[in-house]
Amino acid sequence: MGKRPKIVVIGGGTGLPVVLNGLHKKNADITAIVTVADDGGSSGIIRDYVNVVPPGDIRNVMVALSDSSSTFKDIFQYRFNSNDSFLSGHAIGNLIIAALSEMKGGIGAAIQELSEMMEVKGNVFPASDEPLVLHAEFTDGTQLAGEAEITAAHKTIQRIWVETNPWSEVKKPKAIKGAVQAILEADQIILGPGSLYTSILPNLMIDDIGQAVLKTNAEIVYICNIMTQKGETIGFSDADHVRTLNRHLGKNFVDTVLVNTKIVPEDYMDFHRYDEVSKQVTHDFNGLRKMGCRVISEDFLLLRDGGAFHNGTQVVEELMNICSNPKRK
């Protein structure tokens, strides 16, 4: 591809910055669309008190795409560990994003201002300029609201959707300006890696984002998780992940799936530290191909600190190869 490929990455959580950090080193035109349904930790507290979209994932994405000094990025990422009842657990970057949102009258203007300050190379869009509430219906017919409550229930999820807060003037979740256009103009859309029900799908459940993903001519690439996740994908194969995505949008829309084939050594995982993971995702390549997916299986595994992660360098190399050899729609 002679021109700079336009790549849109959609998701949230810790997996998103890994891919963005690698893409940042490539000659790509990058847009990140970040979930705003997170209600845990520092982000959740700030969204409740200040009524701003949860800033944590946005903070990590901006650092991944930033050309500012390592010292500045370290300060931005610093999390207070004092016993102070207010500051304990808060990242400085979260507080800055919340403050700028208030000063500038919205999250969009705040991110634009902060992107210039941090020399961010690319575009960062929260999926919506409203903090959204994640809802789930389980296979037993019960329903819950809130990301933390949904995953803590440890039930099998049938479907999820997002809504605005009950007190919001906006009644229907809507994508932030620029996000939909970026999807429609992209050469490649990347979903993941990240929590299927709480990091990836909440973005796609915003109607205009979901419809744009179905309408775009871009190749849709799903980076399948290496491990299943407690409260979300216990017992899932790679095909089950894609089946869930397709079911929520009512169509087989995923073109290409990146699957790790390297085995995580037995007894390696530190389940006390990473209590959200359980077993390695199983493979069902025939199931993927029946849904029209091109399957790219490779050693994408990075073992670090008792956990199994995606090797960002390997994943990004494959993503750039896909840009050069796109799957025909």
Rank of each mutant, 00 (worst) to 15 (best):
P131T: 09
K6E: 07
I296C: 05
W161I: 08
R243Y: 10
V170F: 03
N252K: 13
A152G: 06
V180G: 15
T216D: 07
T35S: 11
I7G: 00
D207R: 15
D255Y: 03
E113R: 10
I263K: 11
D39M: 04
D39L: 00
S195G: 08
Y78R: 10
T71R: 05
D187Y: 12
T244V: 11
I322H: 08
P166R: 06
S237A: 05
D240Q: 08
D207F: 02
R247L: 05
R304I: 13
G2C: 10
S278V: 12
R159K: 09
G306Q: 04
A136S: 07
V281Q: 08
V277K: 11
K230D: 03
L87S: 05
A32K: 00
P54A: 02
Y197C: 02
H310P: 04
V19T: 04
D270H: 04
S88Y: 00
S42W: 02
N286V: 08
C224Q: 09
K172D: 14
K171S: 15
M291R: 06
I46N: 01
G231F: 00
K262G: 06
G105P: 05
A148V: 04
A99W: 04
S101R: 02
G292S: 14
D299H: 13
N321P: 01
V221E: 00
V221N: 01
H272I: 07
S195E: 05
G105N: 14
G178L: 03
A109E: 15
N21D: 13
R304T: 06
I200N: 04
D270A: 03
D84S: 05
S199P: 02
D38A: 03
I190S: 07
D57Q: 13
E113L: 12
V34Q: 00
K155E: 03
F76Y: 12
A32V: 06
F309H: 13
V120I: 06
N311F: 10
I96L: 14
G15T: 02
E298H: 14
G89D: 00
K73D: 02
Y49D: 14
A179Q: 04
V18F: 01
K104F: 15
Y222G: 07
S85L: 09
A98Y: 04
I33G: 09
M205H: 02
G307N: 04
D140G: 08
A175C: 05
E232I: 05
I189G: 04
N51P: 12
M269A: 02
E169N: 11
L144A: 13
G93L: 02
G210H: 09
T244Y: 05
H272V: 10
G12H: 01
D57M: 13
V213T: 12
T164L: 07
W167Y: 14
G194S: 11
P131A: 01
F76L: 10
P131L: 03
Q229K: 15
E130L: 02
G89K: 00
G210C: 06
N21Q: 15
K215G: 09
V133W: 14
S297P: 13
I150Y: 01
L20T: 08
G250C: 06
G15F: 01
G41I: 00
N286P: 08
D255K: 07
K3Y: 07
S115V: 10
L301N: 13
M117Q: 11
P202N: 11
R294M: 09
D267S: 08
D284L: 06
V259G: 01
N60K: 13
K327I: 10
K26V: 05
R289T: 15
F253K: 09
I176L: 15
L65M: 10
A91P: 14
F271I: 12
M269K: 00
R47C: 01
K121L: 04
